[in-house]
Amino acid sequence: MSDIISLNDQYKMKSGRSDTSNEVRENVFTDCKDAIVIKNLRKSYKDFTLNNISFNVPRGTIMGFVGENGAGKTTTIKAILDLIRIDGGEISILGSNARMLSNEMKAQIGVVFDGSNLHDNMNSKNINYVMKNIYPNWEEQIFNRYIKKLQLPEKKIIKEYSRGMKMKLSIAIALSHHSKLLILDEATSGLDPMVREEILDIFLEFIQNEENTILLSSHIISDIEKIADYVTFIHQGNIIFSESKDDLIYRHGVLHCRREDVAVIDSNFIVGIRENSFGAEVLIRNKDDFKRRYHQFNVEKTSIEEIMLLVSRGKERF
């Protein structure tokens, strides 16, 4: 039914723009140290390519890493964690080359994958015992506290855990060794809303310490919208934007108008258009400038989900 058209396929969100909010953001990036820096990361598979992607995860923030299934989120995270060989580019974690992290550095990173990666016939007590002998900074008390808080059974083996329980256990592990950086790949996907809420609360608690950073990949945008400070959007192996969530929402707007009104609007303002039988929905960038120029239109607030949808569909079209 709906038809989405982007009139501007050059959606330059990262560099070369002159609006003030972006300049402010650039300053913030250079002033604070980044927990993760990715420069020109390249990785080719037969049917998929990560295309020279670059973005930073500022320390002390939650970075939401969004994109549809197969966009390259997991590949990027695997590259960050040195689980795949990269074809080019550089990645640094907490100031060190990601390919040569010392064990001390690795001990400060908590990782949660989609799925538990733990052996089926172990229970949480066994896990504690194993991790105590792997992480030099393992805190048994913190782990046990999380196990209680998250209502995980001590004696039940992981095979009998539900998906939600497995994710909670992985998160408890990631948080029990004084991690400074959490890297989570689809940690909230496939969970019921109650568990997701519970897990998101734990992340918010973790980020209370200003030294701590989270990179959270998800295709559930509402989760990102709830907790992320920054959003990086990956689409077909390309980074479309990597920005402050508030800036994104502040700078963009949606206007509902008749189809013929679209022709009046300067195409530089238009990110994407969704047409339907009632008229058109237009996603506008530089909302304030637009409002000053076009008094006749009423621009409404937009969401990350809407921005992503219109940007990605628009890009596919052109």
Partner: peptide, 9 residues
Amino acid sequence: GYAITMPIS
């Protein structure tokens, strides 16, 4: 893949 992210070479 999980173990490699831990302090183990």
